[in-house]
C-alpha cells in the first residue's frame, strides 16, 4: 500500500477504512499465526497422547487390566441340596421380569434377575445394565436379597487368583479409587505377592469386580490423561477430548494447506527463479564464486 499523507484527512480516512476491511477478513498470514498458536497448545496434549499410547501398547491388555494373576474360575454345576426358596413376592414387586437365572456362587445357589422397573420406579432398586434394563440378585437358600459375606468373598477371591502370594487381608470397602466406575460396596482382598495384587468382590452379587496391583494407579492416571476424562470414568466422549480432536483436525488441515502453499512457492524445488529459493541461491553463489559475485 502506498504511503498516505496523514494531513490529507480524506485520503487518510479512506486508507484506514481499507486497512480495517482487509484485517477483518481471512488471510493466510492470520491462519499461519493461528496455526502456530494452536501448535503451541496442542504439543502438550500430543506428547501426553504419545506417551500414554506407548504405555498402553507396551504394557498390553493383560497388564493394563492387572490380570497377570487372574484366573476365570469355571462355573460350578448346579447343586441345590438344602433349602431352595423362590422369592415370589419380591420378584413380583420388581416390575416386568424378563429373565431369572439360577447359578452357583461358590456352593450357594443364586437368582440373577433381569427386569424393567419403568412402571414401578418406587419398588426394588437394582443395578442398571447398558441396555436400559436392571438387575437384582437373590439368595436361593433364604429367598432374601443376596449379600456376600466376608468369608465367601475371600473364597471367591482366592478362586480367581493364580499367583504365588498368600492371602494377606480383607477389607470391606464402600467404593474404591482403584475402580472409579464401580458403584460398590464390596470387599478388597489383598495378596502378599510381588505385584501387590488386590481383588475386589461385589457385595451385591458376589462377582469378581476386578484385579488390581501396584501398577494400577499409574494405569488409571494414563487413562485419565489419554481420554482427557479426569474423573476416571474413561468416557472418551467428553467435551475436552472432542474439542482437542477438532482442534487437532483443524491444525492438521491448516498444516497441509501451508505445505501446499510452500510447495507452490517453490519451497521443495531447487530453481533459482522461484521466490522461495532466492536467499538459498544467493548464499550458494557467494560460496561458489566468492564475495565479488554477490551483486
Amino acid at each position: 500500500m502506498a504511503r498516505v499523507n496523514p494531513l490529507d484527512r480524506e485520503k487518510y480516512e479512506q486508507a484506514k477504512q481499507r486497512a480495517n476491511r482487509k484485517s477483518s477478513g481471512w488471510s493466510m498470514s492470520r491462519m499461519i499465526r493461528l496455526h502456530r498458536i494452536a501448535g503451541l497448545i496442542l504439543v502438550v496434549q500430543l506428547l501426553i497422547w504419545t506417551v500414554t499410547g506407548f504405555y498402553f501398547s507396551f504394557m498390553g491388555r493383560e497388564a493394563l487390566n492387572a490380570q497377570q494373576n487372574y484366573h476365570a474360575a469355571p462355573d460350578r454345576v448346579l447343586a441345590i441340596q438344602g433349602r431352595y426358596i423362590v422369592p415370589l413376592r419380591q420378584l413380583s414387586q420388581l416390575g416386568d421380569v424378563y429373565e431369572i437365572n439360577v447359578r452357583m456362587r461358590d456352593e450357594l445357589p443364586q437368582f440373577a434377575v433381569v427386569y424393567d422397573s419403568a412402571h414401578r420406579p418406587r419398588h426394588e432398586v437394582g443395578r442398571s445394565r447398558g441396555d436400559g434394563l436392571q438387575q437384582a440378585w437373590f439368595d436361593a437358600e433364604t429367598g432374601q436379597r443376596w449379600n456376600t459375606g466376608a468369608v465367601l468373598a475371600q473364597r471367591l477371591a482366592v478362586d480367581s487368583y493364580l499367583g504365588s502370594g498368600m492371602f494377606n487381608r480383607i477389607t470391606d470397602v464402600r467404593r474404591s479409587h482403584d475402580l472409579p466406575r464401580w458403584p460398590g460396596p464390596g470387599f478388597r482382598i489383598d495378596f502378599a505377592d510381588r505385584l501387590q495384587t488386590r481383588v475386589y468382590i461385589d457385595q451385591v452379587n458376589g462377582d469378581v469386580v476386578a484385579h488390581r496391583n501396584k501398577h494400577s494407579g499409574l494405569t488409571e492416571l494414563m487413562y485419565k490423561l489419554h481420554f482427557m476424562d479426569y474423573s476416571g470414568q474413561r468416557n472418551f466422549n467428553n467435551v475436552f477430548i472432542i474439542a482437542a480432536g477438532l482442534f487437532s483436525l483443524w491444525f492438521v488441515l491448516t498444516g497441509i494447506i501451508m505445505i501446499i502453499r510452500i510447495g507452490r512457492q517453490g519451497g521443495f524445488v531447487a530453481r533459482a527463479g522461484l521466490q522461495y529459493n532466492a536467499s538459498l541461491f544467493k548464499r550458494l553463489r557467494t560460496r561458489l564464486f566468492g564475495a565479488s559475485h554477490k551483486n
Binding site: 462355573d75 454345576v77 448346579l78 447343586a79 431352595y84 423362590v86 429373565e99 431369572i100 439360577v102 452357583m104
Partner: peptide
C-alpha cells in the same frame, strides 16, 4: 423356578438355568 432341582437331576452338567 421350582423345576430347577429336577432340571439339575436331568441335566447334571448344567451350570446355569435361566427361565
Amino acid at each position: 423356578l421350582e423345576q430347577v432341582p429336577k432340571l439339575q437331576t436331568r441335566y447334571p452338567e448344567a451350570t446355569q438355568a435361566a427361565l
